[in-house]
Design a protein around this nucleic acid. Structure first.
Lengths: 198, 198
DNA sequence: TATATAAAAGTGAACGTTCATTCTTTTTTT
DNA sequence: AAAAAAAGAATGAACGTTCACTTTTATATA
């Protein structure tokens, strides 16, 4: 048993190393400018070994996307509970997302690049969208309670969440620094744009 | 003279055809999955001819980016005048941008993909940013008049303009339809998030 | 427990293909 | 006729993937 565990552990390490290398290289060079040979080298593995874990290059990047997206949404909703008020829930989730995008910047950039290019299969993309359900449910509740504007989820997402991606990427390019004050301001803008005005 | 004009005209036509083909193919397949041979074929030109107009593939995509970005900002500011009030000016520019993103969807998608991947040289990216100056000036005026929140331009852009990219891409993927009502709502959200509350 | 055998994991080199770019030739323009 | 523009074929490099082989691990047998 413990022997089998050790063996399995080893394999997962290699898979993780491959996914990590994929994220880093795709971030810096883009999908098609990232050869399998480089991914293998960075993961300290033979190119052929990649094909023991993934069907092909497309499968590797699809799986990487879903893995990172899952990690992202898990983090976003980790401390959220349905018993919270709409405003408190939204503030919490928003801050967790902001937190993730700043702390796990590399992962967030990878997601952004995938979301804005034809790099990912549509199936994998749809798979990734599902994970946002708790936020959509929260918004539905907010609309029912008359706290959140009765807009389509796409509009709410565009104004409440997506701007964080832009800010994170812009900051990563060195244009400016996102500090605590900026984040508080950003949250106020986000909330202003989706809350019902009194 | 008229012959020379005709000749020059012909050349520009070829250049335009190449840029048009680049946009379409890169939109559908991504930069590195778009071979020069296909660009040539779509533009009805020999692969070798591309190199009469562009140094290499990178130069082709850089020039395409700058050309589209210029067209975009020209459209955005075409009817704007400095004599307008801040609110009227912003509303006008915002609507022109929305208009462009919906009407020239292919071009807007190309810009979005460039802006979110390492496909474009940093120099070309910076070149593209400059064109937004009139909007930044408007915001500066708005802040001075106490109409617009005293936020960094990056924050204002993230909440007022960037969401349109997300909406355009999402609509293009067929997730929903951006009609007049949606656009009016989107504008209200944009304005809510950057205006000073009374 | 020690050894033999089978299976699984891992590898480096090689293959066939594709690609950006260049070379040589042909066509068009002046 | 000279020069410029365009074409198509050619080239060398790079890539994703596969292949034949080795090493490691697990299982069975004695």
């Amino acid at each position: 048993m413990s022997i089998k565990m050790a063996k399995l552990q080893k394999s997962i390490d290699k898979r993780n190393a491959l996914i990590k290398a994929t994220i880093e290289l795709v971030n810096n060079n883009g999908f098609h400018a990232t050869p399998m040979s480089k991914i293998a080298k960075m993961a300290n593995v033979s190119p052929a070994t990649i094909y023991l874990y993934f069907e092909n290059k497309q499968d590797l990047v699809n799986q990487t996307y879903i893995e990172v997206k899952t990690e992202y949404t898990k983090y976003a909703f980790a401390t959220y509970e349905q018993s919270m008020s709409v405003e408190a829930g939204f503030k919490l989730i928003w801050n967790r997302i902001a937190d993730f995008k700043l702390k796990e910047c590399e992962h967030a950039m990878f997601l952004a690049q995938c979301d804005n290019s034809p790099m990912i299969d549509e199936d994998s993309r749809n798979e990734g969208i599902k994970h946002l359900q708790p936020l959509l449910d929260l918004w539905a509740r907010g609309k029912a309670e008359g706290i959140i504007k009765p807009l389509s989820d796409y509009l709410l997402y565009a104004y409440a969440i997506n701007p964080l991606s832009f800010l994170m990427i812009t900051q990563k390019r060195g244009a400016f620094k996102l500090d605590k004050t900026h984040l508080e301001e950003a949250y106020q803008s986000a909330w202003s744009s989706i809350k019902v005005c009194e």
